[in-house]
């Protein structure tokens, strides 16, 4: 896959912690290479779901680092449930992945 997302979701004491690593250049559009600006290319919206229901929506932008690492926690997740991650960037490219809570 061109744009892989690595996910780790674990639950303990009723709290599920999701950590993910998203492969993306996240070019801000302000950096020059050989005198020419690298065109902006960054994730605009990233959505995290739990069994299909949205639990977190992130509005990212050019200030987020390349290959971002992101982690958050929510209540109500159980072992074996599905966590989904999907993003869309400013060029309309998208990627999605789902994983089971361990």
């Amino acid at each position: 896959m061109a744009n892989p997302i690595l996910v780790r979701a674990q639950t303990a004491h009723g709290v599920t912690t999701v950590a993910c690593l998203v492969k993306h250049p996240m070019d801000s559009g302000f950096v020059k290479k050989a005198g020419k600006l690298i065109p902006p290319h960054y994730i605009e919206v990233i959505e995290f779901t739990h069994n299909g229901k949205t639990v977190l929506t992130g509005f990212w932008g050019p200030a987020v680092s390349r290959n971002p690492f992101f982690s958050f926690a929510f209540k109500g997740g159980k072992k074996g449930d599905t966590v989904g991650i999907a993003w869309v960037d400013n060029k309309g490219e998208r990627a999605a992945v789902s994983a089971k809570i361990a």
Binding site: A19, L21, K23, N67, F69
Partner: peptide, 9 residues
Amino acid sequence: IMELPPYGF
């Protein structure tokens, strides 16, 4: 960070 190391890719 090392839970999902950035050098993985």
